[in-house]
């Protein structure tokens, strides 16, 4: 499931933008940048929903009658409906964020910081050396100000 996180918006890209499924996966990789931790928790919740649905499913007798099959189908439909609705909402939030640049993006160049809290700044570059340069600058600022 963890390996599939970058591709998890693939089916929704298909629904929204009508892409073929391969290009939809590629687009999903782009949309999920910086959101992998969020998606991990989202998929964790969906897994809990799935386990709950399986528990309800198991309460239905296993005799192959039409009534039992319809009951099973209602459980399957309700589960995939809830999962799809929640997942789709997360996808639309990711779509809304498409114009913004995040920590893992070079859209604003490597020479930038983003501000998480008022007094905390983090380097936004993917190059690890930037962290040392950032610390160097911070130390310089502390000594300079005092």
């Amino acid at each position: 499931m963890t390996f599939g996180l970058p591709y998890s918006f693939g089916p929704f890209v298909v629904v929204h933008e009508g892409e073929g499924f391969l290009s939809a996966f590629e687009r999903s990789r782009f949309l999920t940048r910086d959101l992998r931790i969020n998606l991990f928790f989202l998929q964790g919740f969906l897994f809990v929903v799935l386990c709950g649905a399986f528990s309800v499913f198991s309460a239905i007798p296993n005799r192959p009658t039409f009534t039992n099959h319809v009951l099973e189908s209602v459980v399957i439909t309700a589960t995939s409906g809830l999962v799809g609705l929640v997942w789709n909402h997360a996808f639309r939030q990711a779509l809304d964020l498409e114009g913004t640049s995040g920590t893992d993006s070079d859209a604003t160049g490597a020479d930038s910081y983003f501000r998480l809290f008022r007094f905390v700044e983090f380097p936004s570059s993917r190059k690890h050396l930037e962290i040392f340069r950032y610390l160097d600058n911070t130390v310089w600022r502390v000594f300079h100000d005092h």
Partner: peptide, 19 residues
Amino acid sequence: KTVVNLTFRTISIQTALSF
């Protein structure tokens, strides 16, 4: 470095669940 205020990319799982 120049400090640039960028948006922290995150999605609200809670909003998605309630929706």
